Simulated assay, not measured.
Amino acid sequence: MANADTVPKARVVVQQCLSARLQVKPPSDENEAEYVEVGRGIIIYLCFLKGATEDLVEKMVRAILAVRLSESEPNGKLVSVLDLPGDVLIVPQATLGGKTKGKAMQYHSNIAKTEGQDLYTKFCTMCEETFETSPKTKEANKSVKHGTYGNRQVLSVVTNGPYTHVLDF
């Protein structure tokens, strides 16, 4: 059994994309569905687990936005999404905390929904603030978009990979 220091407090999947479109509000009798869209950059699928804190969110944002996972052109050298510069789409993904038990999935490791919502909002805000203060992303008019926490969402992705990484924090 792992000790408390090695048990992840958050799980993230980062995927390189050429474009992505996420439905953030389903259609209703009165309104059409609402979407957010990004161009070339990364998609961050995000799940907070028990024990996650605001301090962890700061560490995650710094690490994810700085890691060199995006292919630059024309040489294909790996750069961070800030150096690309590229867009970011953040997708809440509670299912990343699941574990199998027999033929079923269980989510006992996930943080409580209200705590997860607060940390997700903080994560999105910190990413947006980082983009606003980064010269390359600001100059290139790149942005951070995000999904709606706690709702089922429809996602369409165009990727030149897939180039996908799982990160535990």
Rank of each mutant, 00 (worst) to 15 (best):
L82A: 02
L82H: 03
L82D: 04
D83P: 03
D83W: 00
L84K: 13
L84A: 09
L84T: 08
L84P: 10
P85H: 03
P85Y: 00
G86K: 04
D87Y: 02
V88N: 04
V88T: 10
L89K: 06
L89R: 06
V91P: 05
V91W: 01
V91L: 03
P92R: 08
A94I: 13
T95H: 04
L96T: 04
L96G: 07
L96Y: 02
G98P: 07
G98C: 08
G98Y: 01
G98I: 05
G98E: 07
G98S: 10
K99N: 13
T100G: 05
T100H: 07
T100N: 09
T100D: 02
K101L: 12
G102W: 08
G102M: 06
G102P: 07
K103L: 12
A104Y: 07
M105I: 12
M105G: 00
M105K: 11
Q106P: 00
H108N: 15
H108C: 06
H108Q: 15
S109K: 14
S109W: 10
S109R: 15
N110E: 05
N110K: 04
I111F: 01
I111D: 01
I111P: 01
A112R: 04
A112K: 08
K113E: 15
K113T: 14
E115M: 08
G116I: 14
G116E: 09
Q117N: 11
Q117Y: 09
Q117L: 14
Q117P: 00
Q117T: 11
D118C: 06
D118M: 13
L119Q: 05
Y120M: 03
Y120C: 04
Y120G: 02
T121E: 15
K122I: 11
K122N: 08
F123G: 01
F123E: 03
C124F: 05
T125M: 10
M126V: 04
C127T: 10
C127N: 07
C127V: 09
E128V: 13
E129A: 12
T130N: 05
F131L: 01
F131M: 01
F131E: 00
E132L: 12
E132M: 10
T133R: 13
T133F: 00
T133E: 08
T133Q: 12
S134N: 15
S134M: 00
P135K: 04
K136G: 09
K136D: 15
K136F: 01
K136S: 15
K136P: 09
K136E: 15
K138V: 09
E139L: 08
E139K: 11
A140M: 05
A140S: 13
N141E: 12
K142I: 09
S143T: 13
V144Y: 06
V144I: 14
V144Q: 02
K145L: 03
H146F: 10
H146A: 14
H146S: 14
H146C: 13
T148L: 02
Y149W: 08
Y149R: 02
Y149N: 04
Y149A: 02
Y149C: 05
G150L: 10
G150S: 07
G150C: 07
G150K: 07
N151E: 12
N151W: 00
N151H: 07
N151R: 11
R152S: 11
R152L: 06
Q153D: 05
Q153G: 10
Q153P: 08
Q153R: 02
Q153S: 12
